[in-house]
Amino acid sequence: MSETLAREDLFEPAFLDRLRTLALRLRKRRQLMRRGSQATPATGFTREFKDYRHYTPKEDYRAIDWRLYARLDKLFVRLYEETQELNLHIIVDTSSSMARPFPEKRRQALRFAVALAYLALSGQQRVSLYSMNETVKQELPPLRGQGNIEKIIQGASHLNFDGFTDLTRCFENYRPSRQRYGVIFVISDFFGRDVNTAAEAVSRAATWPGEVHFLQIMHPQERSPELEGELELAEVETGEKRRFWLTKKDVQRYIETFDAFADNLGRACASHRIDFFQCSTVEPFEERFLDMLVRGSALTGSA
């Protein structure tokens, strides 16, 4: 099914203004949080001074710290952190289940994607946008510079939500190169072929070079469906139909199964040092976005 979202539906005119404000709020909150906080042991991409070491011949003499030579009468070379460009990989689940029967999921997922991209572009970082259903497909080449946000928005608006999610295959095939080392955000509902598929896929994602974040978007009715009686349920991804006779007791069991799935996924992520974040379509986007970022990410420099 080919469905695209109008730009106006996805982003209101004031959305980008709010995003800028959001970036400022994020910076402010980050500064506030830094006070008293300890540096994280995570590997960073800063330009700060790192260390000294003895000069050895054939080295670039321009790196000698002459002031130190004057004081100590020994040749030392200043070492700097190697400046590396941060890459943000945004993988959006474009299977049918992200658009139907609850289009709010697509809207929420794309908002997260654009907001993350904006944040990265404004930090002069490269942003890549991928779609994921049966396989992972790069929708936009790596973009850099704040002026490319419009391209990102256009690309996100024209994403085609169709097909089914093959998490195993997608996570198997996708692997960012060393050159594109960075932060990876996977925005999905993580509904695979089986309840254990998502947890298995986590182990594959753990091998990706970089910082991985899983963002699960879901609709409240996916957790507690308002269904009862004789029903013919049709899965939007595969079109498979099943008949059920649901009672309140069955719905309660469904909720328990769903919660067990989410808990299992969360535990699997935690065990592989992958950040797992859930967001419902009815929750206020801006609050949840900030909540997600303050949990710590290289993207925001708080890692």
């Binding site: 004789e230 991804e237 006779w245 799935f261």
Partner: peptide, 23 residues
């Protein structure tokens, strides 16, 4: 007779575990 209500769902993953399925 009332036909069975047709409902679209994101996934059947969690419904399959229910015992009262009419297959």
């Amino acid at each position: 007779r009332r036909r069975a209500k047709r409902v679209q769902v994101s996934t059947l993953l969690f419904f399959r575990s229910l015992a009262r399925e009419h297959q």
